[in-house]
């Protein structure tokens, strides 16, 4: 019998890193060595994670395909599956199937300046793309990363943010919406408040925006006001999903299924789809 499209593959948790408050990064390898060696994906794609006895949830891949032999997921404990995942330990076996979805454009944005605007855990899928771009640094212009969180303890990938800012022709700006413990020396305000602080070569720039829907909504409005065109803004859609395979119907918007045709869309495509972000 041919491969069962719904069957989770067994993966072992090799490492767990406390990323931020309520957020952990899990390093996984497939138990089947052949599958582990062959597994490939594009930044922006996701997989369905199974916690046996609990359920399945779609999670974007945060590692980069340039790093072979493992994959990483950065997960906030917000639902049944993600809370159960947070209780797992190194060595535990869980399920994974994928990758699904279209992923971010890559070769299509060669030679462009790249502007990343991320909110909260929305940096996780962008991190996959950022690391792939830095691995092929000469193919892109200036790389600027704007990252905001609700408060400082929610900032993810802080070590890498420092590394990225040290690389040539790149810029990293951070902000927090609030500073409840007065331990933050940086910018205070929503991530859109960082936009006036950067210089943008508008016709040659592509913006990648990822975060909670409300943040995406306002950042897109800001970018449009700056003069960005709809096809220069790339974002991701969040929708309820069960199958990831275009069958269960939950993520349907117009003729598109976010799990298969997305989750990455340009703002121009989203406008054609009609429904809200």
């Amino acid at each position: 019998m041919k491969e069962n499209i719904y069957e989770p593959r067994l993966v072992t948790i090799k490492n767990i890193r406390d990323e931020a408050e309520g957020i952990k990064t899990f390093t996984l390898t497939f138990n089947d060595p052949a599958l582990n060696a062959a597994f490939d994906y594009r930044p922006g794609q996701f997989g369905e994670v199974t916690i046996f006895g609990v359920g399945e949830a779609p999670i974007s891949i945060t590692s980069s395909p340039v790093n072979k032999g493992y994959l990483e997921l950065t997960v906030a404990a917000v639902g049944d599956v993600t809370r159960a995942l947070h209780l797992k330990r190194v060595g535990d076996v869980i399920g994974f199937r994928g990758p699904y979805g279209n992923g971010f454009p890559f070769a299509e944005v060669y030679n462009k300046d790249i502007l990343f605007v991320a909110g909260g855990i929305g940096l996780a899928p962008l991190r996959s793309l950022i690391n792939q771009m830095f691995a092929e640094r000469d193919k892109f212009g200036k790389i600027c990363i704007l990252y905001g969180c609700r408060y400082p303890r929610l900032l993810c990938f802080t070590e890498e943010l420092g590394k990225w800012s040290d690389l040539s022709d790149s810029e990293v700006l951070l902000t927090c919406d609030t500073n409840p413990e007065s331990d933050w020396q940086g910018n205070i305000g929503v991530v859109g408040s960082l936009l006036p602080k950067i210089e943008v070569d508008l016709p040659n720039t592509v913006a990648f925006v990822c975060g909670p829907p409300v943040m995406i909504h306002f950042v897109i409005q800001d970018l449009l006001k700056m003069g960005f065109k709809g096809d220069q803004i790339i974002t991701t859609m969040e929708r309820r999903m069960e199958c990831g395979l275009g069958k269960c119907g939950h993520c349907n918007i117009g003729v598109k299924y976010v799990c298969q045709d997305g989750p990455v869309f340009s703002y121009q495509q989203l406008q054609e789809l009609g429904e809200k972000i």
């Binding site: 719904y6 199974t50 046996f52 006895g53 609990v54 359920g55 399945e56 069960e242 199958c243 069958k247 269960c248 119907g249 939950h250």
Partner: peptide, 24 residues
């Protein structure tokens, strides 16, 4: 054709994954 998927524990170490009709 829309469906939901749910896991249910059937014992300490066993569970089932069910696909069932859902309504838009």
């Amino acid at each position: 054709h829309c469906f939901n998927v749910e896991d249910t524990a059937t014992g300490a170490r066993t569970s089932v994954r069910i696909k069932y009709w859902d309504s838009c």
